[in-house]
Simulated assay, not measured.
Amino acid sequence: MATVIGLNDGMATPWSQGVPKNLVIVALCLLVGGAAAFALREPRAPGALPVAPVVSDGGTGVPTGGPEVPTGGPEVPIRDGKKARLTGAYVDPRRPRRMPPGPEMRHGTADVWCEGLSLERCGKYPQDCEVGVYCDGVRFCRSQPRFPSPETCAGEGILGANVACCSGLVARCGIPEGGRGTCNPQQGDESEPVCIRCGDGMCGPFEQACNCPEDCAPSEARPKLRYRGLRPEGPEDFALDASAAPAQCLDTQPSPGAVHNCLVAWSESLFGLRTVAELERAEDLKPFTPFDLDLMRCLERSSSYAYRRSETSREGCIEALYRRTRDSRLDKLRWFSTLSGGAR
């Protein structure tokens, strides 16, 4: 007959001795297995690669660190302009730019500090220094780019070049004074002239009334002007279609906001203008039609479901345009306006 040992007998059985030992082994297995699983699930991230600093010229958008940073930034399609502005990737194509960098680094001592040198001393270091000129005609010394441009003349929109403007272009200064209708001649500061196609009778993308009044300033004899944008063939999305026109925006785009962006893309490409008020100053608006302008004018207005019956709102203006023209293509915009509360 087996002997039963009580809990208070002061004696331990083999079973009672093995329990703590087994618990310890199980706990160790769980800890080791958990650590291994964690290591497999969360691999150690490699250290970040070192990034070479990029030296800027102080806000003009001209990289000085080599050709790995393209001058002017990435080309942004017009249709992505709003997104690019929000992300900071947008570069206004109408903004003057510096000469593009060349493919090869110059061979100089690179030990000469050219800024501030006299013109006489500047000429003693032709491998490192070059002479520039401000808008008021004052010449100054500056460092040559590490990757000098191979271009022998400066193209349209090039700012502060050390070579002459290409044939048909002139170097001009002057910018509008913010909101006052006056001009800043850019005299007495560090502004530099830009090469523009002034004198051809067209107000180009880098021209305005202050730097090219002969092309861009209206007068009694010439109340309307001729404008030229950067893409006379039309926006990128329509460039391959020779029969494309702004009217196709209403056919191809699904919503009021998309139609408006499409019309603005056409306006900016052909004329360098963005609003109906600006377009009304243009002498020849082809291929825009009066209907296109009326629609663009409606889409420029704020969307308001509460005031959708008033022509001061986008919805009311579109509805009035439909009643006047009976153009069935407006139905999808009317649907957005009346049922979705003015989808943007």
Rank of each mutant, 00 (worst) to 15 (best):
T3Y: 12
M11F: 06
Q17S: 12
V19A: 14
V26R: 14
L28D: 11
L31G: 14
L31W: 09
F38C: 10
P43W: 06
V51R: 10
V54A: 05
V69G: 03
R79M: 10
K82A: 08
K83F: 09
R85L: 06
R98W: 11
M99I: 07
G102P: 11
H107W: 02
D111E: 10
W113R: 13
W113P: 01
G116S: 13
Y125D: 05
P126C: 09
Q127D: 12
G132M: 09
S143V: 05
F147I: 03
E156A: 02
N162M: 14
V163N: 14
Q187V: 10
G188C: 10
R197N: 00
D200C: 03
G201R: 09
G201H: 13
Q208V: 05
A217F: 07
S219K: 04
E220I: 10
A221E: 10
S243H: 04
Q248V: 00
C249F: 00
L250N: 07
T252I: 07
Q253E: 08
S255Q: 04
A265V: 01
F271E: 07
T275E: 12
R281A: 00
D284T: 02
L285S: 08
K286V: 02
F291Q: 09
L295D: 00
S304H: 11
R309L: 15
A320K: 13
Y322M: 11
R344F: 04
